[in-house]
Computed example of a mutant assay.
Amino acid sequence: MSASRVCALSALEQDTALRVEVDGVPIAVVLDSAGEVHAIGDVCTHGDISLSDGFVDGDTLECWAHGSAFSLRTGKPLNLPAYEPVPVYAVTIDGDDVLIDPTVTKEA
């Protein structure tokens, strides 16, 4: 599979997560305060909650329901109650297009 356009770069708000779905895979896309775009699995591994409804702080995304924060770079949980990581996807920027392939995960 090749990468799919998920949104326009100009549509992303800094320090806010946007939920997208590519071939049935829910993904949270985040433009962090440093201007880097990240894509991680949108489902909290603790409570089956959408992470894109959570809070962005630096390079972390915190689940609004139980407070588990996940690294946007590695997908690893940084605190309990979550202890399983979420997938992290490679992001390609082509002009104003944000492209993600949900079959290709980044190595931590």
Results as ranks from 00 to 15, higher is better:
Phe55Cys: 11
Glu13Pro: 07
Ile49Val: 14
Leu80Val: 08
Ala65Phe: 12
Pro81Met: 07
Asp48Ser: 14
Leu99Thr: 01
Thr60Glu: 15
Trp64Lys: 14
Gly75Met: 11
Val98Ile: 13
Ser52Gly: 05
Arg73Pro: 15
Ser4Tyr: 07
Arg19Trp: 00
Val86Gln: 01
Ser4Trp: 01
Leu72Ser: 04
Thr45Val: 10
Val30Asn: 00
Ile93Phe: 01
Ala34His: 12
Lys76Ala: 14
Ile93Val: 14
Gly24Ala: 06
His66Leu: 08
Glu107Gly: 15
Asp94Asn: 05
Ala17Glu: 04
Val86Gly: 00
Arg73Ala: 13
Ala90Tyr: 11
Lys106Arg: 15
Leu78Asn: 07
Phe70His: 05
Ile49Leu: 13
Pro26Lys: 02
Ala69His: 10
Ala90Leu: 11
Pro26Asp: 08
Leu80Met: 12
Gly47Glu: 14
Ala90Phe: 03
Asp97Ala: 14
Ser71Ala: 08
Lys76Ser: 14
Pro81Ser: 07
Ala28Phe: 05
Thr45Cys: 14
Gly24Pro: 01
Ile27Leu: 03
Ala82Asp: 07
Val25Pro: 06
Gly41Gln: 04
Asp32Pro: 04
Leu99Asn: 02
Asp15Ile: 11
Asp97Ile: 04
Leu12Phe: 10
Ser68Ala: 10
Val22Ala: 02
Pro85Met: 06
Ile100Phe: 02
Ser52Ala: 15
Val30Met: 05
Pro102Cys: 04
Leu12Lys: 02
Gln14Phe: 08
Val20Trp: 00
Leu72Thr: 04
Ala8Lys: 10
Leu80Lys: 15
Asp15Lys: 09
Ser33Gln: 10
